[in-house]
Design a protein around this nucleic acid. Structure first.
Length: 244
DNA sequence: TAGGCCATCTGGTCCT
DNA sequence: AGGACCAGATGGCCTA
């Protein structure tokens, strides 16, 4: 949305240039004051003395004096425009700097999100998790990995903990190292694309993120999106749920 | 065309 | 004072 900024800056440039450069050939305000009000400069700063010019006795008595009066008024106007432009310019430059920092900050934040996406199970090339999906997915992914470790530590006999933890159709949902081919298929871009969405399992662990009101099970469409997801729907996706 | 997502700008607030 | 952080506003792009 560069237009407003550019417009603003160009406006500023116009204002600043028209006020700081002497287009009409008149001297600066300070010069005006020093020259036109020598009696005032002795008792105070030139500019305030100039502001008081209309109150000077006999200032508008003659046509010549009236011209001078008008001229002073014009110069005061130009001085005010100049000082306002200066202030505006200062604020403007600070704003531009702040905008730049903010942009950079958001870029860093996005880079961090990209880094997070890169360590999550991969998706088809043309699907990119949104920011909120990335965060929710990461939360659940971490929870699932931790749960896997926890149950594995309990020393389940026979099949591996991974196989014990998940129904066969959900095994791909807990990937080891991200494998684009298989994980892309298993995660898919929507709930219906994932085999995990087909099976049902009771939600038995209240500490599961799946039990939280604010988290989804993973990426994709309706099944994965909170809030407002019906509780019974929450219980239909076994992925990342404790499974016994 | 409506809705979702995103980038950017902006002003306010807090912190150093 | 200046920077970081935050939330609201706005407009562009994309998709169903």
């Amino acid at each position: 949305m560069p237009a407003p900024l550019e417009t603003c800056l160009s406006d500023l440039d116009c204002t600043a240039s028209s006020s700081s450069s002497d287009l009409s050939g008149f001297p600066t305000d300070e010069e005006d004051c020093a020259r036109l009000q020598p009696q005032a400069s002795a008792s105070g700063p030139p500019v305030p003395a100039c502001r008081g010019a209309p109150g000077i006795p006999g200032a508008s008595d003659t046509p010549r004096a009236q011209d001078d009066d008008q001229e002073r008024r014009r110069r005061r106007g130009r001085a005010r425009v100049r000082s306002e432009a200066l202030l505006h310019s200062l604020r403007r430059s600070r704003r531009v700097k702040a905008n730049d920092r903010e942009r950079n900050r958001m870029h860093n934040l996005n880079a961090a999100l990209d880094a997070l996406r890169s360590v999550l199970p991969s998706f088809p090339d043309d699907t990119k998790l949104t920011k909120i999906e990335t965060l929710r997915f990461a939360y659940n992914y971490i929870w699932a990995l931790a749960e896997t470790l926890r149950l594995a530590d309990q020393g389940l006999p026979g099949a591996s903990a991974r196989e014990r933890l998940l129904p066969p159709q959900c095994a791909p949902c807990l990937p080891g190292p991200p494998s684009p081919a298989s994980d892309a298929e298993s995660w898919g871009s929507g709930a219906t694309a994932s085999p995990c969405a087909a099976a049902a399992s009771p939600l038995s662990d209240p500490s599961s993120p799946a039990a939280s009101e604010d988290f989804a099970y993973g990426p994709g469409d309706s099944l994965f999106s909170f809030p407002g997801l019906p509780k019974d729907l929450l219980h239909t996706t076994p992925c990342f749920m404790p499974y016994h």
